[in-house]
Structure formats: C-alpha cells, structure tokens
Amino acid sequence: MPQQVPRLAAVFAVAVIGLFVARSLLVPDTFGDLGHYRAAAIDTIVAHPKEYAGHQECTMCHRPIAEQRAASNHRGVRCEVCHGPAAAHVANPLEIKPAVPRERDLCVLCHAYSPSRPTGFPQIDSVTHNPRMPCAGCHEPHAPEPPVTPRECSACHGQIANQLAVSHHAELNCGTCHEAPKEHRDNPRAVRPTKPAERSFCGTCHAADARSSERIPRIDLRSHGQPYVCWQCHYPHYPEAR
C-alpha cells in the first residue's frame, strides 16, 4: 500500500471521530423523541404565561352579568373583548381590576360605519350620531338595544344611504321605490320592504315617452333588456349612468 493512504486515512479518521464525539455531546437530550425536533421545546412553549383568562373564568364570579350578556345581542362578544386581558385579575381579583371602558372610541371600533363591514351589522356615523354622548348612556353594553325604534332607514342601511347620497338618485327617498311596513322597523328580518316588480315602474321616469326632465336617460322599454326587471342589471342606489 502506498505511504499516502494510511496517513490520509488517519487524518480522516480523526475528523470523523471528532464529529461523532461532538455529536454525542452536543445534540440535545430530547431531540428526536417525537420527531426531528427537540421535544422539550414543546414544554417551553406550553409554559408561556396567559394574558387572556377566557370567558369561562369570568362567568364563575360574574354570573348575573354573564347571563344577561348571553341572552343579548352581544352574546358573542366575550368579556375580554371590551374589558381587556384579565388573567392577572383572575389570579388576583382584589388588587388588579380589568378596564371598564366608557369612551365612545371603544364602541366605534366595531360600530363605526365602514363599507367593508358586512351589511346588516349595526353601524353608526360617529360624527353625527349623538356626538360626545357616551354610548353606554343609551345602550346597555351587556344587552345593547336601540333605545327607540330607528326613524331613518339609514340607521341600519348605512351603506345604501351613503352610496345613494352621491348617486344620480340622491334626490329620491327610500319610499319612492320601497314600501316599508311599520313592523319592519321592529322585526327587520321577518317583515321585508317591497321592491319594484314591474319594468314600467322605472319607466315612469326612464321610458321613451315618460313625462320627466329631459336630462334623465331614456330607453325603449319594449326592446331594452328583456326579460329582466330593471334592478336585476342596474343598481338603483348607484346607477352607473353618468
């Protein structure tokens, strides 16, 4: 055997043995127990302290309020949404008290009008809606209800009202096209307002022979857009014609 081979072999053997030694010394104890990772890491993660106690904890002491809330429109809004993280309070109920927010800016986080919010979600315009009055003065946060039946349609249909206001139909009242029974205000989902069912309804203004302002766009009702009712294509709260 040439002289080179045993010499090189010795060097490689030292390196390989060194690696083995390092490996047995440095690989953490629990590595590989559960998979290709340190099982002990899970223990560290699990030991992380909690900030939010969970509504179950709150219910144990604050049962009446919890029951009131559970039967209300805020039944899905758990305690710590408004009162903030309460684990510290649970651990030390007398010394540490959770926040009791009374400002308007907490409520508007959810209830300020935003077109991106789902329709039907109760929203107000914070600037015009009883400015500077605390929300809790009229609405009990644990069982919120409108104090009076809404007068304006826009109280609930903010998105429509907002769009309508900047459209060519801005001057039309809701009542021009919809008939809303009084019961709709009390029980909005059970009793619905009407929608125009006939093409001729829109034709009152838009038909070729309609007696209306000349600036209003006209169509031939017999040939245009059969067989649909107008609002199946056009959005009357924001008609596309400019």
């Binding site: 040439p2 080179q4 010499r7 090189l8 060097v11």
Partner: peptide
C-alpha cells in the same frame, strides 16, 4: 505532507492516478 515523504516513481504514479 502528513509525513508521506516517499517520492519514488511508483509513489508519484499513485499520486497522479489518485
């Protein structure tokens, strides 16, 4: 050299082929 100081022709041939 790792102490491999053999530079006979045979040894060098091994170097070359290796």
């Amino acid at each position: 050299t790792l102490g491999a100081t053999d530079i006979s022709e045979k040894s060098l041939r091994f170097d070359d082929s290796a």
